[in-house]
Design a protein around this nucleic acid. Sequence first.
DNA 1: GAAAACTAGGAAACCGGTTGCCGAACCAAG
DNA 2: CTTGGTTCGGCAACCGGTTTCCTAGTTTTC
Lengths: 343, 343
Amino acid sequence: MPPRKLSETPGNVAKPATISEVALLAGVSVGTASKALNGRGSLRPETRQRVLSAAEQLGFQPNRAAVTLNSGRTYTVGMITTDTIGRFSIPLMMGAEDALGAGEMSVFLCDARDDPIREQYYLRTLLSRRVDGIIVTGRRTQARPPIGAALPIPVVYAFISSADPHDCSVVPDEAGGARKAVEHLLATGRRRVAHVTGPEHHHSATVRASAATERLGEAGLELVGAPMFGEWSEAWGRQAVRMLLGANAPFDAVFCGSDQIARGVADALQAAGRRVPEDVALVGFDNWDVMALACQPPLTSVDMELEALGRTAADLLLAAINGAPSPGRHTRPCRLVIRDSTA
Amino acid sequence: MPPRKLSETPGNVAKPATISEVALLAGVSVGTASKALNGRGSLRPETRQRVLSAAEQLGFQPNRAAVTLNSGRTYTVGMITTDTIGRFSIPLMMGAEDALGAGEMSVFLCDARDDPIREQYYLRTLLSRRVDGIIVTGRRTQARPPIGAALPIPVVYAFISSADPHDCSVVPDEAGGARKAVEHLLATGRRRVAHVTGPEHHHSATVRASAATERLGEAGLELVGAPMFGEWSEAWGRQAVRMLLGANAPFDAVFCGSDQIARGVADALQAAGRRVPEDVALVGFDNWDVMALACQPPLTSVDMELEALGRTAADLLLAAINGAPSPGRHTRPCRLVIRDSTA
DNA sequence: GAAAACTAGGAAACCGGTTGCCGAACCAAG
DNA sequence: CTTGGTTCGGCAACCGGTTTCCTAGTTTTC
C-alpha cells in the first residue's frame, strides 16, 4: 500500500507541515519555534515574527496528538446518547456542542442505541482516547445506573439523570413546567381541567401528572377524572377525547403530556364540534415546533429548553474538568410558550 | 490549580495505566510489552501471557495520542453538518457513525449551523486534529461549493453534494423516487395526478416535479395543472387543496413533495368531503414516520433511505482513507413505502 | 576595562507508545 | 569443545511537539 495516497485531486497536499519545518524555514531551533508560536520564553520580537510568518507560509497547525501527549489534555469530550439520537437528544447535543466548541473542545459523538454493550464499548473507547470528560444524554428523564464507577474523568448527565445522587446531573423541572401549564389555564379562567398523557410506567408522565394534580389541589380544584395514561401519540389523543366526551364529565381545558397527544386532542375535539380555545383550552408539552405550530390553532406548550440544558451540562463539565465539580442533581426551569390554543 | 482533581468520588482513579507500568508489573521491557500487546515480534507464549494479564490487571488502555503520533493515523473522522442538525442529518449521521464505529473510528461532531465562518473554523480544527477523513452533510441535496481545496485528507459529501464533480458525493436518487411514486399511482389506476411541493428555488422541489412530470409524460399523461410550488408546510398543503378544488380540474391523486404537505392535503381533502384513498390517492415524500403514520389514513411515502446513505458515505470514506478513493457523484435509490393512502 | 546581570536562543529530556536492530542464551550439529 | 542457527527479549530511535536548563553574547555597572 502506498504511504498515504488519499485522493486523486492533483493539488492535494501531501502532508501537513511540522514545527521542525517551520523552524528550518525561520532559521531557528525547534524549541525556539515552539516558544515563538506559544508566546513563551524570551525572544527578540523580530525572531518571533520570523517564526510566525514561516508558520503562516507553511499553513502550520500543531499536531494535536503531540500536544496531547505532553499536556495530558485532549481538549475533547465524549457525548454518549444512551437512547438513539432523536428529537430530544438533538437540541441537547447542539447546546452542549455549542458551549464546548466555544471552549475549544471537540466532541466525540457516540450513539449507544439503547444497547448496554454498545454503551460500554463507547465508554472504553472514550477512555482510551483520554477524553477530558463525558456527557451522557438520553431520551427520557428517568434516573439510570451510572455509566461507570470510579472513572478517571468527570461525567455529567444531561436530561437523563444518574441514579447515584453524587453524580452531576442536569434535568428539566418537569413538575414546575406542569405547574406553569396549570397555572396558565387557571389564570385564563379554566376550572375543569383534564389531563391526557403517556404511559404510566414513563417517569415523565407520572411526574407531570402529579404536579398538575397537586397544583390544581392548591387552587381547591381537582382534575376532571383521573390522569389518562396512554401512549405518546396523536391516536391516543383522539381516543382520549372520545372517552372524555363519552364520560359526560364537562371540561373546559385539557393539559396534554406531549404536543403529539395535544394535536390528536385538538383534531378530535374539532371533529366533535368543540371549538379550541373557546370551548376547550389546550396546553401541550415539549414545544415541538413541528407539532405545536402545525396544530390548529397553534398550540400553547411547555418548553423544556433543552438547548440551554445542554449548554448548562457542558458548562458544568468544563468546570469539573478545570477542577471545580458540582456534584448532585441540578434542575433547570421550563418555559411556557403561549399560543392561540389558550388565547 | 491542583493537578487533576476531577471528582469528589473517593474511589476515583487518579490516572490511567501506561505501558511502562504494565511492563514493570510483567517484568519485561516496554518494547517487549508493546510487542506482546500487539502480537508482534517473537515472544514466548508464557511471556506474552504475563504481559496480557498485567495489562488486564491494571485496566491498561493504550494512549491513543501516543499511537497516533507514530502511526500518523488518528482513527478519527470529522462529520460536518453544514446546516443545523435536523431531521435529515440525524439518520445520515447515525448511519455514518454506525459504519465508522464498526471500523473502530470515532466521530467528531461539528454543527456549522449554516454559517460559513463556523464551517471554516471546524475545518481547521479537524485538520489540526489530523482526522483521517471528513464527511460533509446538510439539509438539502443541492450542490454546494467544496468545503476546501487541496485538502490533505479525503472528503465525502453525503446527501448534500459538492459542486466539484471530482469530489466524492453520495446523494439519493430523488428523481427516481418521484418516478416510483408516480408509477405506483399509475399502477393503482390513477390518471389525473396533481403535484404539490415546496418552493421553486429549492432544488429537491424542482427535481422531483420534473421527474414526476416526465414519468407521466412517458405514460402519455400530463400533470393536473402545473406543479404547485409553495412551502414545505401543512398549511401550504391545505391551501393547495383549496386551490385545486376551486380550479374545477378533476384529480384522483396528489403526489406531494413532502409528508408535511401531504398531511395538510389529507386534512383539507377530508374537510372538503373527499375520501382518501377512495376519491383521491396520496403519496408523500421523506417517509417521516411522525407525519406518515399520524396521517389519516397512514401515508404512502418515498423513503430516501438516509441511514443507508450515511452508511455508504462512511464506507466510501473508509475506502478512500485506505487508498481506494471513488471520486464522483454516487446515487442511491429511494424506496417507496406503501400504506393506506393509496391502498 | 573587568565583573555582574541580562537576554536570546539552542540542546536535550520528556510525554507514551512502536519498531528495527542487535545481543544473549540455548539448541543441535560437526 | 567449537561453531552455526534459533529464539527471545532488551535497547534505542522515532513520532511532533513542550519545557527546562544552560551557554554565549550583550549590556550595565563601578
